[in-house]
Amino acid sequence: MAMADLDRDDELLEGFFRAAREARPAPSGALMARILADAEAGMPRPPGPHPLARPAGGGGDGGVLSWLGAAFGGWRGIGGLATATVAGLWLGYAGLADTSLLTGGLWSAGEAAATVELMPGVEVFALATGWEG
């Protein structure tokens, strides 16, 4: 084939290529919506601080308190913990005088039971503070 023929063929083909480039097919709105939905569904979760992670650089008391608060489930958790502590103290210092309160009458009054007095004299303390059981 002569060089002139090749040039002419190239020129002809380039006309077709140019027309095809300008008539570029475009995606539909529905396709874009599906692709964005796929992106949304597969989107990795943004990184966030771990609930128990200590804040970086938190060397002060505020940082430690915040970390402890988070470790025990926030202020509500700390409130529950404080309530349980007070109740335990109360049972320990005052409730041992009459264990039937705790056993709910499972043991009869006359039934023998081995007891160990952990805090001798607590009854005297209870009488002195006016508690009658």
């Binding site: 995606p27 396709l31 874009m32 692709i35 964005l36 992106a39 949304e40 990795p44 943004p46």
Partner: peptide, 17 residues
Amino acid sequence: YGQGDRAAARALAGRLT
């Protein structure tokens, strides 16, 4: 997008689809 940026997903989809 790999860090969860929704706007980046929209930009990429608009550019590459």
